[in-house]
């Protein structure tokens, strides 16, 4: 993989990136173990409409990076721009999906999906229509008036994704959204997410600890290594689209997976 050459060409093409991260540092100060350097010199541009996955072992700061991008965490140093504006708090044009569905149990499915629209005081009728459309898209139209407790984990996670999309954000951040799902459901959700990405023309940044998932979904995979969390490599994935489950078994797919895994093998040897 001539990764350097590819990322160089990518830089040229990303004239006006949606996300521009440069020299980002994040240091947590804890009482007992001193300062923890969670992110170290993160540089990353994401073009509009791009699907970028971030992969790495636990503790490599990938969730921290997402939280900083979402405006939920303050950065220690560096620059984070979203659509040309520095991030200094949550922005309206952003959808966030968590590892757990994080639904409000006292609200029905459709009322959960409506939460961002209500918070942002968007037109109620239009938003409700969109919420219904999104639920139909993920096959949950029949469950709109049920409560989250009546749904399975995979269904709840789909509701969480609909909620992240209801206010039509240009930018979708997903923090290990399928980590808690079984392998079968996870594959189906990956296919569904690619369809949503195509339909909604959103820019997606997805964090995962699954290397195959990272390769399968992404146009670019950001490989992060821990202590301190930094970007080890950014790999362009040149697999054809639309992607199919059968691709998991192709030699090309295996090449990408191995190229990424190498980073973590060497990491382990260092330990």
């Amino acid at each position: 993989m001539p990764a350097e050459a590819l990322s160089a060409s990518r830089e040229a093409q990303a004239a006006s990136p949606l996300v521009r991260v440069s020299g980002l540092e994040k240091v947590y100060s804890t009482r007992d173990s001193g300062n923890v350097h969670a992110l170290n010199d993160i540089n990353l541009d994401v073009a509009p409409g791009e699907f970028v996955t971030i992969v790495g072992p636990s503790g490599c700061g990938k969730s921290t990076l997402l939280k900083v991008l979402a405006g939920l965490l303050d950065k220690t140093a560096g620059h984070v721009d979203l659509a040309g504006h520095p991030v200094d708090g949550p922005t309206r044009d952003l959808g966030l999906v968590f590892q757990a569905p994080v639904l409000l149990p006292w609200r029905t499915v459709i009322d959960n999906v409506m939460v961002p629209a209500i918070v942002q005081k968007l037109d109620h009728k239009a938003s409700r229509k969109r919420a219904e459309d999104l639920l139909r898209m993920v096959g949950l139209a029949a469950f709109a008036h049920r409560y989250p407790g009546e749904l399975s984990g995979g269904m709840q996670q789909r509701v969480g994704i609909c909620r992240a999309l209801v206010h039509n954000p240009a930018f979708l951040l997903m923090d290990e959204p399928f980590g808690a799902l079984d392998a079968m459901t996870r594959e189906a959700m990956n296919i569904e997410l690619l369809r949503i990405w195509k339909d909604q023309q959103a820019t997606i940044m997805l964090v995962t600890h699954s290397i195959p998932e990272a390769v399968f979904l992404a146009e670019r995979v950001v490989v992060m290594t821990p202590r301190p969390g930094r970007i080890a490599e950014i790999i362009d994935v040149d697999l054809p689209r639309p992607r199919h489950v059968e691709m998991f078994n192709t030699p090309e797919f295996g090449t990408y997976v191995r190229a990424i895994r190498r980073h973590f093998d060497s990491q382990m040897e260092l330990d």
Partner: peptide, 19 residues
């Protein structure tokens, strides 16, 4: 997580309290 979810879609303190 529930509070972060609301914060991420720009909820005010009052909205977080109420919702």
């Amino acid at each position: 997580d529930q509070i972060d979810m609301l914060k991420a879609c720009t909820a005010t303190d009052w909205q977080i309290f109420r919702m």
